[in-house]
Structure formats: C-alpha cells, structure tokens
C-alpha cells in the first residue's frame, strides 16, 4: 500500500492564513464596455466603488477592476460627438470646449464575490441623466 505523504503542519497554517488574507481578492471583477453609439464617447465610468480613469470610444472596454459586491448602476460622463461637431459649426460656440454630461444606466447589475462581469452600456432609453453627483463641499 502506498503511503500518503504527510503535509507539514506549518504549511497548512500558511495555506490557511494565506487564503484568509486573500479574501479581498475574491471581490468581483467588472468590465464596462461602451455600446451606446459610434458618435458617443464616455469617460470615467464608475460602478459600486470602482472608478476607471478612462475615455471609451464605441466598442472600447475598460480594464477589469475589483469592485465591492453589491448592486449599482454604471455612472459616467457622456459626450455626443455629433452634437459637438454642430456646436463647432456655430461661430458663437466654436471656441468653447466640449460639454461632458453626467449620465447613468437605468438598469442595475448585481455582482457577487468571485464574479467576472462584463457590463455593456447601451444607448437610447437605457440611459438617464445622473443628478446624484455630490456637489463640492468643505474642508
């Protein structure tokens, strides 16, 4: 009969403690993809404690980030390039920069520990303006 090789007790302890310390590594990974429109750019999307400092053209995806488990909408800033082009044609507004507006998805997503979730942000009625942005506050 083949003898089972015993694992040293110290290694078991290390394994147990290492597993516990790594519990936050099981936080869900989330990716946001811009699927609104070819003429729409979004930037700095956020979802349940995560924030990506990124600008996404149509079809672009963020890098995966670990967010808190829970339920949230995707919040972001939106720029419509068609509108911006029209604005540039107007001599009175030609010198002003692009206006980024705060938007969020109507839908909410739930993510749990261990999940890998790709969230595609769609256009049309799937979006609404986001008035929940906190204003500047004090020191």
């Amino acid at each position: 009969m083949k003898r089972r090789r015993q694992v040293p007790r110290s290694r078991l302890w290390l394994l147990a403690i290492g597993g516990l310390l790594g519990c936050d590594l099981r936080y869900p990974e989330v990716v946001v993809v811009n699927r609104i429109d070819t003429a729409v750019v979004i930037r700095n999307p956020s979802f349940n404690g995560c924030r990506w400092e990124a600008t996404l053209n149509y079809g672009d995806a963020t890098v995966p980030r670990r967010c808190l488990p829970g339920r949230d909408q995707v919040h972001f800033q939106k720029l419509d390039l068609d509108q911006f082009a029209e604005q540039r044609m107007d001599p009175e507004e030609a010198t002003t920069g692009p206006l980024w507006f705060n938007y969020q998805t109507v839908a909410q997503w739930t993510v749990d520990a261990g999940d890998f979730r790709v969230i595609e942000v769609q256009g049309g009625d799937a979006l609404e303006q986001d008035f929940s942005i906190p204003g500047p506050y004090g020191h």
């Binding site: 956020s46 349940n48 404690g49 924030r51 400092e53 808190l68 909408q73």
Partner: peptide, 10 residues
C-alpha cells in the same frame, strides 16, 4: 476621500 460607492473618487 473615496466618495460614495456610486460616485467614487480616486
């Protein structure tokens, strides 16, 4: 200040 989870700051 990390901000709220809906609108985090980095």
């Amino acid at each position: 200040d990390p901000g709220t989870v809906q609108h985090p700051f980095t």
